[in-house]
Design a protein around this nucleic acid. Structure first.
Lengths: 208, 208
DNA sequence: CGCAAATTTGACCGGTTGGACAAACGTTAG
DNA sequence: CTAACGTTTGTCCAACCGGTCAAATTTGCG
């Protein structure tokens, strides 16, 4: 495996291309995007772009593999040794920050899911599944210890994903419904407050 | 407005085309789908398909307008006169049934959102926004009457949408994580149980 | 049946798309 | 300075795409 040596310009231009491609792919999906669109957005000619990435799919692949790393990080950060409700609140906050700061990445992932995950299926069935199994076991141990209410750990995780990613993937809808006055930047703070209340409220054990 | 008279064959074939197009559009989005793909899936030649729908966009438009009606119905069905927690449980059940029985429609809508809602923006800012405002007022009246806990009605609605639609839009991921044994049909029953617990648990007023 | 209207098909068209290629242009290290 | 290497561009191509059209076929009705 000889590592391809990269020049300074190569590193810069590849970064510009990936950023432009993220715009395009996250909005139109792989098939719905064209190399010309990406080249335009990157401010270069199509042949020039193809000098840095030989095929359209190479760009998409680079984006996805980079995304998947960042995708699992917040879940991995949940510690079995911490206070359960604090850990979950922290997870909500991290995922919500990702929706606010990296909405295009979230939409790229959503696009991949809608298409049936043709390119990331092995990762879903492998790495992701193992990680979720592991964290589900942690949640179950919290339940057994009476530190959170009895609940289905898998569907709890799905709900955390769904509610937080919603603010990136369905951003247009959220903003349209809230209107200009309530749809400003503070919608993420409102969401954080609401979601912490929702999950903490439902997970606080009956005793307390 | 002269209603275009339709023959029996026209009604049947248009239905077949719309069904095939729903398959294709919901997986690849508008730009990522081709007339040939749809014609193939519908079992007819491209010119034949274009005899029933003159333009690709006409098919997409027909699907969307049909979808939007069904989309608002469950929310509309929430009655201010009913028992709050029963109404919300019913809403969860109806939305979850839609995710189970009409996942392609959900994905078509999700695709439209990811693309920035170019074709349904007026509906989001008009009809949808008005309806959500109306139901948010209902929820607020429940809160004022002390029948459910204090909460943000808009983000509550977003969470209900997100959690229920997740089982259609991210179906691949849900099935991959649950695996073959737990990812069978009963995942919707498990989800219903979990979500009712989640929202009822968080919304039950402090007194009770 | 027999005929008009509805349906289906194959051939075709102009524009777009992903990608190849060689020539021109820049950069940089000796 | 200059040769070698890295970068950029214009041109080109075959496949694909949305859509047209006229001819052929089928259907429904008196």
């Amino acid at each position: 495996m000889a590592a391809a040596p990269r020049t300074r310009i190569q590193n810069e231009k590849r970064e510009i291309i990936l950023d432009a491609a993220l715009d395009v792919f996250s909005a139109h999906g792989f098939r719905g995007s064209t190399i010309d669109q990406i080249a335009d957005a990157a401010g270069m000619s199509k042949p020039n772009l193809l000098y840095y990435f030989r095929r359209k799919e190479d760009i998409h692949e680079a984006l996805l593999s980079r995304l998947l790393e960042a995708w699992l990080a917040p879940l991995r950060a949940i510690e079995s040794t911490g206070d359960p409700l604090t850990e979950i609140r922290g997870y909500i906050r991290r995922k919500l920050e990702m929706s606010r700061d990296y909405p295009r990445e979230s939409r790229l992932f959503a696009n991949e899911m809608l298409q049936g995950a043709p390119r990331v299926m092995p990762m879903l069935e492998g790495e992701l599944r193992r990680l979720v199994d592991e964290k589900a076991a942690v949640i179950r141990s919290w339940i057994r210890a009476g530190r959170i209410a009895e609940t289905d750990p898998y569907h709890l995780i799905f709900s955390l994903w769904a509610t937080t990613q919603h603010y990136a993937d369905f951003d247009v809808q959220v903003r349209a419904v809230l209107g200009p006055e309530r749809g400003g930047d503070q919608r993420f703070e409102d969401a954080a407050r609401f979601l912490e209340q929702l999950f903490v409220g439902a997970l606080t054990p009956a005793g307390k």
